[in-house]
Design a binder for these strands. Structure first.
Lengths: 348, 348
DNA sequence: CTGAAAGCGCTAACAA
DNA sequence: TTGTTAGCGCTTTCAG
């Protein structure tokens, strides 16, 4: 199970040359049927496995792909990674995951590290801090395979797998409006991220569609992506202490959503009576929350799968890819109690 | 940033031999100060990075470690993986994560795959189904570095990083007892796992310490580790439909805990009025649950870190390790509303 | 149809 | 102190 035989061992045992064994193993046609059978049989018997490292050195390919995300312990990304692994594993690639913790500096360092590890391609979801995408553009122009997913780079022509953020946000805000909420605040990460711009646009469009005014003071940014709970706390506190206080908050990202809930809870406010909530999150347990949380859910697993398929296709393509994939999946809106207006009777 | 130079490029540019360059780069002492400076300077200038694949081939080490867990999208394991990565990254190892989904067959396949990838060592948390640990024993006896964490193998002398499951369970059950619950059921995964045996022992000991009878019919197993929600549903339903129905459930694992909550919710029962709950979980949002959940939390991140440190030490040790690490960390009991007895007045 | 030899990038034993 | 050479495991010309 554990010792590794080499092609040399087979050659020696069978009195053949290594090249013959190699050819037999690789199903070359310029080889005797009998020899082939012999080699294959013996290889099977000793459970021969080619040394992937030697192969990599030879082929100048590492058969690994690098992943750059902000955090692993985040429901969206752990699901996406699950999807990534599921494809990569079957295609013979392994996956090296790195975390930026929303820092542009660490992102750069991670990419350097992955490149020095000679990954064959990169799967990237940008950090909230990232503003300069020229390094990616540079790599891409060099012909290095990159696929962005979720948090894509705005200004680069490249492969992008996303969800319909605009629609996802629109529908959620629309739901809140239909419930009767009129002062809907918006909690977001930095504006650097395209997905945040799109979600903001969806938010605005929904307000507009229902003739509600857009108020700039209702939009709060937490630049660290909600990683720093103080940021979120400040933003939420600020919102809830306004004289013209919002009656609902729409949160635009996973971490932000839960952080926001913690803050509200800590302030002793009741959801949705004091403040209604709906937000993007892929948490599997949002239904168990108090109250059950209305969420916009993304097909994270599938996004991971698609991104990986496209990346591997790009890696294995003979010529530089010139046509870029731009898949957009749909979000799922799951309405629960946190966004219901008329629950006052339900309270103590 | 992206093109890779080789030692050859440097040698050529500087009119040296590759071995001289290699020596200079590796800080060998048998080298001229001036030559060394020259090489180092030039390497720095062109941003030379040694090819890890060539190194691996040479050293017969892949500088990667394999991880086997049941699931990535599980708060305990995603935190542990976070810890693993944090150490591995700094030590120059990369991490290949595989998932068993609680299947012994997949576990075996994953390990085969990792070995064929020539990982330098293995970090393992057993699947719920695993009964035969001889393959691990075999590998270990061959001198292959393995560290078990959390779900360790009972019958092998090896490195084991765990938490004090006995105490963790004891304290949680004790808490329930002190709250006034007397009919405490126990929901567990298969008995194959040592940690489950230990937690069961802690449960029993707590009952015993407070002169409560142990009832076998209060112990329910969900062999798939809670991955199959039907299993959990059946178990919970069965418990709650007993004539001598328990007034509290102690759940012994992450997935089980949330699945149990879903089932109770679906049955329309109230926690803790109808049934109290306390359980092992590393979820970051247990406090947001309805009601906030009493949990036994494990230092997952730290466990991942320690396990990785020990593994790397074993990998890099000159001689086969004969003394095995057996670290045991403490759990943290966080008491919340789900385990509070006197809340009837709080209901509608 | 099969073998010998070179080479992927690097290190290290051996020579000089 | 530096260079030459072999070799890690594999594929692939190039000869035969």
């Amino acid at each position: 199970m554990f010792e590794s035989y080499t092609i040399k061992d087979i050659a020696k045992a069978l009195g053949l040359s290594t090249s013959t064994v190699s050819r037999a193993l690789n199903g070359s046609h310029e080889i005797g049927t009998e020899t082939k059978r012999l080699v294959l049989e013996y290889a099977e018997k000793i459970n021969y496995r080619p040394n992937p490292i030697a192969l990599s050195l030879k082929e100048q390919k590492s058969h690994s792909i690098g992943v750059v995300v902000c955090e692993v312990a985040n429901s969206y990304f752990s699901q996406a990674i699950n999807g990534i692994e599921s494809i990569a594993y079957n295609r013979g690639y392994h996956v090296i995951v790195t975390q930026t913790h929303e820092s542009a500096v660490r992102e750069e360092a991670n990419i350097q590290h992955l490149l020095s590890r000679h990954v064959d391609g990169l799967l990237i979801s940008l950090s909230a801090q990232t503003t300069d995408t020229t390094p990616f553009k540079y790599l891409q122009d060099k012909g290095f395979p990159i696929v962005f997913f979720d948090r894509v780079a705005a200004d680069i022509e490249t492969h992008k797998i996303t969800t319909d953020n605009y629609k996802g946000a629109f529908e959620a805000v629309e739901l809140l409006i239909n419930e009767g909420f009129t002062n809907i605040a918006y909690l977001t990460i930095s504006d650097n991220l395209v997905i945040m711009k799109e979600r903001l646009a969806g938010y605005k469009a929904a307000l507009d569609a229902y003739n509600l005014p857009f108020k700039q003071e209702y939009v709060k940014q937490c630049s660290q992506g909600g990683l720093i709970s103080e940021d979120v706390e400040n933003a939420v506190t600020c919102l809830l202490n306004m004289e013209d206080r919002p009656d609902a908050i729409f949160t635009a990202s996973d971490r932000l959503t839960t952080s926001c809930l913690f803050t509200i809870k800590r302030m002793g406010l009741k959801i949705p009576a004091d403040i209604a909530i709906a937000g993007f999150t892929n948490s599997d347990v949002a239904e168990l929350f108090d109250p059950p949380l209305t969420v916009v859910r993304q097909p994270a697993f599938q996004i991971g799968q698609i991104a990986t398929e496209i990346l591997i296709k790009a890696i294995e393509s003979k010529r530089p890819v010139t046509e870029f994939a731009a898949e957009q999946l749909q979000t799922e809106l799951i309405s629960r109690a946190s966004s219901v207006k008329k629950v006052l009777s339900n309270k103590l």
